[in-house]
């Protein structure tokens, strides 16, 4: 099973906090977005291994854009 983690709002990608191959637990932050003058973590819903990251720091993401894929 792989989980596609998507942006829930328009935002700037402030930090990418995991790398491909990292293992993450449910609730762990994958990237941190900057929007509404806040730092908003994008979390993995399920635990697993980060298979790919679709954004770079500084990118602008739209609501629904792919952020990362996590294999569980």
């Amino acid at each position: 099973m792989s989980e596609e983690v998507r942006a829930e709002m328009v935002a700037n990608v402030w930090k990418v906090v995991v790398g491909v191959g990292d293992s993450v637990a449910a609730g762990d932050a994958l990237v941190i977005l900057d929007s509404m003058k806040m730092e908003i973590p994008v979390i993995s819903e399920e635990g697993g291994t980060v298979a790919s990251i679709a954004v770079n720091e500084g990118d602008v993401v739209q609501d629904g854009d792919l952020i990362a894929v996590v294999d569980s």
């Binding site: 829930e8 709002m9 929007s35 509404m36 806040m38 908003i40 973590p41």
Partner: peptide
């Protein structure tokens, strides 16, 4: 819930 859409 600020975790989702900043809580907007």
């Amino acid at each position: 819930n600020p975790l989702r859409r900043g809580g907007c």
